[in-house]
Amino acid sequence: MLNIQSVDKIYPNGVRALDRVRLDITQGEIVAVVGGSGCGKSTLLRLIAGLDPATRGSVALDGDTILSPHPCVGMIFQEPRLLPWLTVAGNVAFGVSHLPRGKRDAIVGEVLLRVGLSDYADRWPRELSGGQAQRVAIARSLAPRPKVLLLDEPFSALDAFTRASLHEHLLELWRALQPTLVLVTHDVEEAAYLADRVVVMRPQPGRISSVFELGLKRPRDRYSAELEAAKRRILHALDQSLRTRSAGDELVPAAAI
């Protein structure tokens, strides 16, 4: 259980990136966070990750207040952020280096198999495509078996085809290990296809505009009418979040996000 308890984040330059954000996420849930640029989505993930402290309020995982990176929380950034001086296997093993060698190798082999990169263990990061590198990053964050996986627009730099195949990889992993997934995305289809619940945020100050359950069963069909309806629902909520800004603000159509 992940509890975000009325969190404020004010950056040193005075930007109110988060304003009284409150959200409870149950173990194993997939939550998509959507919203316009600058509404605090990355900030929220960084607070959950323990990379930045909250100005007020707190984040707790199973009752433990998160003050610094928690052993049960993993993060996948927008870029793969592989360490160029380690091979693929070395990168994947990075978070489990305290384990004895045999056990570590077994874990590395297993997670690489899951992301479909078993044959790439000895490659250097420079020898990977963008999608492969992002899969290695996913494997690296999975190796320590996190209970919560935070993903900050992990697939946004990839083409639609690679993205769709990574969605399948991610869902497969989720089925096997049942981590909580908090996924920031700009892609409405991605949110509709993956999430149990969608959190819509709005900017200045960044706060939650609406939260709703999609109520779709898995496996889902990308082209089904239900999914289309879910996409429209998310778009509508995004539109609302931008329209209800104080008078005088320019209106940005949600399609522009």
Partner: peptide, 20 residues
């Protein structure tokens, strides 16, 4: 960004120097 990877895996100060 690279240093943050180390922080996510909770490296100590010494490990951060040695491994990153």
């Amino acid at each position: 960004k690279t240093v943050e990877v180390g922080r996510m895996f909770r490296l100590s100060q010494f490990q951060l120097v040695r491994r990153i």
